[in-house]
């Protein structure tokens, strides 16, 4: 089972064995601009991806109000 990354409603596949940080870079995002959430919990970007993981990437940059 591949590793799945979900960012702004879009799904991406990543390789097991790579870190969150590398996987984020690989899909063209800046690691500084996202946080990774696994099963509702925040994880650090050095976490090594394992088969079947589904990671939600939360954008940290925002602009605007109300």
């Amino acid at each position: 089972m591949p590793v799945k990354l979900v960012y702004r409603g879009k799904e991406y596949e990543a390789n097991a064995g790579s870190t969150v940080r590398d996987a984020v870079r690989k899909i063209g995002l800046q690691p500084e601009t996202v946080l990774a959430v696994l099963d509702g919990k925040l994880i650090t970007d050095d976490t090594v991806l394992r088969e079947g993981m589904q990671i939600r990437l939360v954008a940290v940059i925002s602009g605007g109000a109300g």
């Binding site: 946080l35 925040l42 939360v58 954008a59 940290v60 940059i61 925002s62 605007g64 109000a65 109300g66």
Partner: peptide, 24 residues
């Protein structure tokens, strides 16, 4: 850092609007 505030909201369980202002 903006990243630190996003992390705080997630860890603290604050329900906030993820989408940025459409005009931004």
């Amino acid at each position: 850092y903006e990243r630190e505030m996003a992390a705080y909201a997630i860890v603290r369980g604050i329900d906030y609007i993820y989408d940025e202002c459409p005009h931004a």
